[in-house]
Amino acid sequence: MNALRWWWGILLTFALLGIARVFLPLPFMNEVVIFSIYAMGCNFLIGRVGYISFGQPAYLAFGAYACAFYLFYFGTNPYVGILVGVLGGLIVSLLIGPLFVRLRSDYFAMVNLALAVIVFYLTQKVLVGITHGDNGLWFLTRISSTPLLDLTIPSHFFIFSLLLAALVWAFYKYLDDSIYGACCLATKINENKLQFLGYHNFSIRLLAFVIANSTTALAGAMYAVYLGFVSPEMASPSRAADPVIVTILGGVGTLFGPIVGAIAYTGMKDVISKLIGNWELFIGFLLVFIMLVADKGIWGSLAPVLEKWLFRRKSPDSRGHD
């Protein structure tokens, strides 16, 4: 029954996203779907492992540039490009993960921010020969058409990204339900206690780091294919808080949080930026307000109300003590 409820929920969510495409502009919908994938990795890190990372743009850029290098210098198939992007993020995460996951949350946040700064300057100044610096790499016309879902067509890209987002969501749902998901949560709650049971916290955190950042790299690669262009701006430290904001806005540690957060954040950005010049200021105030009145985020606050309304029964936990 519980599984049915979850799958029903995600099917409905993605069906709604598909229907929303009829009423909302395609670029907006593509942005929402890719951003929700971006936020899923961040959500897993914060919600399950307790790691806040302000360096997610760096992993986004690793995925985007790996994909872009392939499409600019070597090949034309966008699916291969996306795969190369994910592999790029995976390899980088495996290389730097063992150094970073030794740190606790505050230092982890800062060292990742430092990484974003490094990647930004590497792509902007140091590796200009291959990244073309601020001019970026343009390869939209190099991307070849593919059968079935042609990613050069935005509407096809939307279907592809929607399917991919559903798959990524299902993967995180599986992780959350697995014993590994419980291990991640346990290491967040009390790492010492987990060691008492014979678990190696380092391995648990490293795997989580690699999974989350590979997801972020996937989002990066999708941005690269969708836009047909990458620039150092992607790794800009000024955008470091974006995935964290989306995660918090949606509801930390909730499965629907990244999707809801991405819709809310992209929507606010889209609507408010058309009305007000300094839209970031308004969003800043809005976030402060949300933190004060609903610290569980939009989905975290709405979910219990919706569940009660839809299923008309209390969960076993809400009964309190016998």
Binding site: A182, L185, N190, N192, K193, F196
Partner: peptide, 11 residues
């Protein structure tokens, strides 16, 4: 088994 009885309370 430590003294503080802190199980993984979210699980």
């Amino acid at each position: 088994i430590p003294q503080d009885k802190k199980v993984f309370f979210d699980l």
